Computed example of a mutant assay.
Amino acid sequence: MEPVEVTRGTLPVVLGLPHTGTWVPDEVADGLNETGQALADTDWHIDRLYEGLLPGVSTVRATFHRYVIDANRDPSGVSLYPGQNTTGLCPTTDFDGRPIYRDGAAPDDAEIERRRLAFHAPYHAALEGELARVRAEHGVAILYDCHSIRSHIPFLFDGILPDLNVGTAEGTSCDPAVEAAVIGACRQAEGYSEVLNGRFKGGWTTRHFGRPADGWHAIQMEIAQSAYMDEEPPWTWRTARADPLRALLSGILHDLARLAPTLKGTTA
């Protein structure tokens, strides 16, 4: 299996999907314990949630699971949230802090580098290539990074996560108009809680590719899984919750596509 799938579209918007993959190569799967083999920290159904919402959008999707290597972490291994609990480039625990490897099977530095070259680097090369293509064609590219997570994970954050968590690296990863369009739509939507640059300010992808001065705008949307699915195995999709959320997300993506041409003047 290839580590990344790319669908080339015709619009200036690119969807990043780093955590929907469930492929774990045999040499990695053999070292996982029962907790790791459950793959509980997948961004379940996120590709289905966004499917068809914006015809002509480009997508870049990692096929490998985040337990192989996390495509949204700094490849140097530096923490995105210093001083806070998180999982690393090649996680050794799940989101509840429980080990995911059998004793002695966790990857060493050489294995982490092998996985970086085999999985992390190809994903980001594909993403960069697609953003560059879109930027060259439209004069601007907007990366919308798609994520989800359980709404209650005491190991990572206190309390209940808002439904919609928008991250722009404290406003540095995109033009203010991009941030305003996304968080504004979230605030106007009935029945959803939202936060801007709260616990999730945007991962490495948003921070790395967010270069608004060069016409590359990046924003992360982290959705609480309770907004569209059951948060416990078998992680069932709930249409009654998902359909109104899809309508909201469709409006956001269409707004970004309409907004993009107005951002050309900010490019270098």
Results as ranks from 00 to 15, higher is better:
81 Y>E: 12
27 E>H: 09
41 D>H: 01
23 W>H: 12
23 W>D: 09
35 T>M: 13
17 L>G: 10
31 G>N: 12
23 W>Y: 11
55 P>V: 03
80 L>P: 07
24 V>M: 09
64 F>Q: 12
77 G>Y: 00
79 S>L: 13
74 D>C: 11
69 I>H: 03
40 A>Y: 07
77 G>I: 08
79 S>D: 11
51 E>P: 08
65 H>E: 07
23 W>L: 06
60 V>P: 02
20 T>Q: 03
41 D>I: 00
25 P>Y: 05
25 P>E: 07
74 D>W: 05
39 L>M: 05
39 L>R: 12
30 D>M: 02
42 T>V: 01
30 D>S: 06
74 D>L: 02
25 P>C: 02
40 A>E: 13
22 T>D: 14
48 R>M: 10
38 A>W: 01
32 L>C: 01
46 I>A: 09
61 R>H: 07
76 S>P: 02
35 T>H: 05
23 W>A: 10
81 Y>C: 14
63 T>W: 02
22 T>Y: 13
25 P>H: 05
70 D>Y: 06
16 G>P: 05
69 I>Q: 01
35 T>A: 10
15 L>E: 02
54 L>P: 09
60 V>H: 05
20 T>H: 06
82 P>L: 02
24 V>K: 09
73 R>H: 06
46 I>D: 09
82 P>C: 06
48 R>P: 06
80 L>A: 10
69 I>L: 08
20 T>P: 15
29 A>N: 04
34 E>G: 07
32 L>S: 02
79 S>I: 10
49 L>V: 04
46 I>H: 07
33 N>F: 01
59 T>P: 11
54 L>R: 02
82 P>Q: 07
77 G>F: 08
63 T>F: 00
24 V>L: 11
15 L>Y: 03
27 E>Q: 13
62 A>H: 01
17 L>F: 15
40 A>R: 13
